[in-house]
Design a protein around this nucleic acid. Sequence first.
RNA 1: UCCUUGGUAGCUCAGCUGGUUAGAGCACAUGACUGUUAAUCAUGGGGUCACUGGUUCGAGCCCAGUCCGAGGAGCCA
Length: 473
Amino acid sequence: MEYRKISDLLKSTEFGKEVGVRGWVRTKRGNKNVAFIAVNDGSVIHTIQAVVDLSKIPEETLKHVTTGACVYITGILAQSQGQGQSVEIQTTALEIVGLCDETFPLQKKAHTLEFLREIAHLRPRTNTFGAILRIRHHMAFAIHKFFNDKGFFYLHAPIITGSDAEGAGEMFRVTTLDMNNPPRNTDGSVDDKQDFFGKETNLTVSGQLQAELAAAALGLVYTFGPTFRAENSNTPRHLAEFWMMEPEMAFYDITANMDLAESMLKYVVQYALEKCKDDLEFLNIRAIEEDKTKKQNERSKTTLLERLQAVVDHSFKRITYTEGIAVLKSADKKFEFKPEWGSDLQKEHENYLVDHFGVPVIVTDYPKDIKAFYMKLNEDGKTVRAMDILFPYIGEMIGGSQREENYDKLYARIKEMHIHEESLGWYLETRKFGTFPHSGFGLGFERLILFITGMSNVRDVIPFPRTPKNAEF
RNA sequence: UCCUUGGUAGCUCAGCUGGUUAGAGCACAUGACUGUUAAUCAUGGGGUCACUGGUUCGAGCCCAGUCCGAGGAGCCA
């Protein structure tokens, strides 16, 4: 007898063969003659039904088959006599490996996502989170596959950084100093020279600058790893610890950059539609059910599966920031913030643009003053070669740019923006020694998963979310 | 961080204008039932009304503060 994955057994036609499954009980039903145990092992969203003849299995054993218990079940694979499933196991042996008493918080009913966040150590055992975690895996794999197939090299950017000038937000300090009694300089400031690295260090907020260094040697590279922002952001789209994927391409201009980003997104969405069918169908129904609880005007006009298919089928709309502002100004809608050339697009503006064009929108050529120092200046001297990809429900999915490769212009920009140039000497040297045109972008992985799964809070698409005032589990 | 909103049984929620012993469904326990599909039916146990203080003859309900959650905004991915 061989233990098998439920995903295999549900597809099997080896009726009459003895098989075994190992997993966790989702529900038990029955009467005094027969019991039905639904078992899930995580290999698929579905359960397999084990049929137990009560004259063969002691009642004492069956008593401990409770929701959440871990069981090993052996039996004969058979075509089901019931309606709900095609395959089932006629149980010959049943072993309770892990008891689960009535204090187990997951019940045979729907729970709110808020409650499940409080029991994040148990929520992978729900259908919803099982589906999300499987999809999350497949999406990470699809990203690696996409880039590998295109000849990119996966670069491991450092998690600990000594650079304090990346300008992407508040950082988490990394130190081994005694917080209660740190060594101090004569002026009272903390003496970082005595710290582990001999200087102030932090957790990375981006792997981009390191990726640029590697692109100057390997040509096409990407990073994919955890990223940390100590911002006090309390929104459904922000985490203090999230995963970011950042490709960096030598000899790509902004257009090639956009082409790559668009084809990558289409590739991974298509991959999900093909490889995560069962999970997506479950989440599709889940989203429809959830929608019914909302007010009429807040309900979505499309289903999750329709939105995913639409991304694959349609080209993204590409407009410049200046054109975008013009669209917003002529819009038949009152904005809380008036669209004005020079100020950043507000959430309501992004939403309007995406809604207006009905497809993901790539906005390019933003005013230089609202973008990062490393973006390439356009001939007009006012705008930079930035590109943001805006998605329905999500907002900014990708942010990228062509990089400024001219040493003098980049140096001037660093000065202009009062950035600590000493800590960026190594970065500037890429422009000094064989500088090259290049581009790249950053993709927030959780935001991608949000879009793919139809969930609405990033805290529900990462196993153990870290947010302000919350680092449980 | 700001604005809005919420915290009542293990879970989801009701609780009227401040008035007797705080309710329901699910879950759980016991029993019934010859194949169930979140099985069904009957019976039963289960409460620091987030916390602290105040107003009142009387507070789940009113007031103040604190903690925590959610939504929106900002920051961003």
